[in-house]
């Protein structure tokens, strides 16, 4: 066991880890930040996506020990300072971009990474960017609308083609 320290959602946090402790386990069990979910074991589903040094990373496919000193942002860090829903979170609620909520943290974090890189993505770019995030409930239609809305674009009508 060794102690790993990271800055998580702006706060310095530490937990004891084994070599095999994944970032997802460090967050969920070590820090009790259970907003980050684990939905698969082959690095496909993206429910566990968090930002590491600003980049989207699958936290189930990264060792905590490899990330000593990293800046990590999880879904718990996405609300406004006053506790109200942040821009992306609000768009997901406004456009019904979630149902069971399990994939949602990963979707929100991937959206944050996308919009940081590409503030006004096209529908095509959104759909392509989210290929590493699986949702079983929504059919993605309203997730795409939510992402477009979060980027400040009009989502009155997503073209049929």
């Amino acid at each position: 066991m060794s102690k790993v320290t990271m800055t998580v959602n702006g706060r310095k946090m530490a937990a004891e880890v084994e070599g095999r402790t994944l970032l997802s386990g460090f967050l969920r069990e070590g820090l009790e930040l259970t907003g980050t979910h684990v939905g698969c074991d082959t690095s496909q589903c993206g429910a566990c996506v968090v930002l590491v040094n600003g980049q989207a990373v699958k936290s189930c496919t990264a060792f905590a020990a490899d990330l000593e000193g990293a800046e990590v942002t999880t879904v718990e860090g996405m609300a406004n300072p006053d506790g109200s829903l942040g821009n992306i979170q609000q768009a997901f609620q406004d456009y019904h971009g979630l149902q069971c909520g399990y994939c949602t943290p990963g979707m929100v974090m991937s959206t944050a990474a996308l919009l940081a890189d590409n503030p006004k993505p096209t529908e095509e770019e959104v759909r392509h960017y989210l290929e590493g995030n699986i949702c079983r409930c929504t059919g993605y239609q309203n997730i795409v609308r939510a992402v477009m809305a979060a980027s400040g674009q009009d989502v009155g009508a997503l073209a049929a083609e």
Partner: peptide, 9 residues
């Protein structure tokens, strides 16, 4: 390759 999060690692 893979998806955006995979490409970041």
């Amino acid at each position: 390759i893979g998806d955006p999060a995979v490409r970041n690692k």
